[in-house]
Computed example of a mutant assay.
Amino acid sequence: MALRLKFRLIRTFVITTSGLIVYTLADKFYEPVLKPALQLLDPESAHDFAIFAAKHGLVPKDKGKDWSGLACEVWGRQFENPIGLAAGFDKHGDCVDAMLSAGFGFVEVGSVTPEPQEGNPKPRIFRLEKDRAVINRCGFNSVGSSVVSERLRKRLVHIHAAQPGVVGVNLGKNKDTEDAKLDYEKGVVAFADIADYLVINISSPNTPSLRNLQQKNQLADLLEHVIAIRDATLKELSPKGRPPILVKISPDLTDEELADIVTTCMRLSVDGIVISNTTIQRPHGLLEQQVAMQEGGLSGPPLKNISTSIIQKVYRMTNGRLVIVGVGGVSSAEDAYDKIRAGASLIELYTALAYEGPALIRKIKIGLSELLQRDGFQSVQEAIGKDVFVSTSQDGMRN
């Protein structure tokens, strides 16, 4: 009991002190001061601190002005910039406005399950420090859709105080639910009228049998159902007013499985695809071999090339007619640019934020602006898919 109390006091001290440092000294002291303090905590406690800091206004605001060419329109919605916060960070809708004010163009909340659940036993998040990567096996720990939807509704009530930006909700299923359609139906009903877009997450490696929903027949059945539920729930709205439906896929699919998913999404007029979730692969060259043996999904730089390759394949398969949200290993402007040129309209990140801190958001936006202008693009949308249909002789060259 004494040890537990001592740990709690230390943890409280680290959280409070680090929070004050973030608030008063901002990004200059992240590497030499705040980051070492966070390393005193296990990864999940460090994540809890980040949520605490954001929720209480302790994350520095991005006061810079974005280059106008970063603004884009997707699904009829206006994005101030294409850099978003991936699902997994703000699982419970605690700090949406704080993360938008930190510079993100959009935030994806979740994954949210219909009923509250604890997720998998701890420890369930592991740092691969030398690889700048993370393995997690959280298993959709969630406070449930009722709590999250109430938080997002309160935000809309006070919209005058809310930060501008797009807010999506990533939907998962409860571990013990046998009929997955019912859980995704509940998620759609809970968030259809308040989310700017909805993501059907069928690709986490940490919920038993979830990835089976990516199989052709199961996927078609599920998507037909959730689209019908969305339309019935918001039947008074025009199609433009209804939240787009996206599917988040695994990076561990065969080419045949990927083709089946893309064909199904195109046939059912799904609005987009998120590429990709974490991977169960352990790419050659990982430096933290001991940690890499942990079970769970790997994120960060080792996933970068895997996800970018899939983005390019999907863009080529659809001839650019399906909106792609690119995520996986984005830790620099170059990484984001590569995914955009591979076919992504929007970019998400999370793992790099844990290593680099909030200053990374502006660095990526500035760097991306410079890369786009260097190559003669007037807007980010002009660069989408530019590396996909180049000839063999031009492959790898920039405009």
Rank of each mutant, 00 (worst) to 15 (best):
D97R: 06
A98I: 00
A98G: 06
A98S: 12
L100T: 12
S101R: 15
S101A: 14
S101K: 15
F104H: 10
G105C: 07
F106T: 10
F106D: 08
V107A: 09
V107Y: 05
E108K: 04
E108T: 11
E108I: 02
V109P: 10
V109K: 06
G110A: 11
G110W: 04
S111Y: 01
V112S: 11
P114C: 13
E115Y: 01
E115V: 03
P116E: 08
P116D: 05
G119D: 05
G119W: 03
N120Y: 15
P121C: 06
R124W: 14
I125N: 07
F126P: 01
F126W: 14
R127T: 02
R127M: 03
E129A: 10
E129G: 02
K130M: 03
K130Y: 00
K130H: 11
D131C: 05
D131E: 03
D131V: 03
D131F: 01
R132W: 04
A133Y: 04
V134F: 14
V134H: 02
V134D: 04
I135F: 12
I135R: 09
I135A: 12
N136Q: 13
N136R: 13
N136E: 11
G139K: 09
F140K: 02
F140R: 04
N141G: 02
N141Y: 03
V143H: 11
G144P: 00
S146M: 07
V147R: 08
V147F: 03
V148I: 12
V148C: 05
V148S: 01
V148P: 00
V148N: 00
E150F: 03
E150S: 15
E150W: 01
E150K: 15
E150T: 11
L152M: 15
R153T: 13
R153S: 14
K154F: 05
R155E: 08
R155M: 04
L156C: 04
L156G: 04
L156S: 15
V157W: 04
H158W: 13
H158P: 00
H158M: 12
H160E: 15
H160V: 10
H160T: 13
A161H: 12
A162D: 06
A162V: 01
Q163P: 00
G165I: 08
G165T: 11
G165K: 03
G165S: 13
V166Y: 08
V166H: 06
V166L: 11
V167C: 10
G168D: 05
G168K: 03
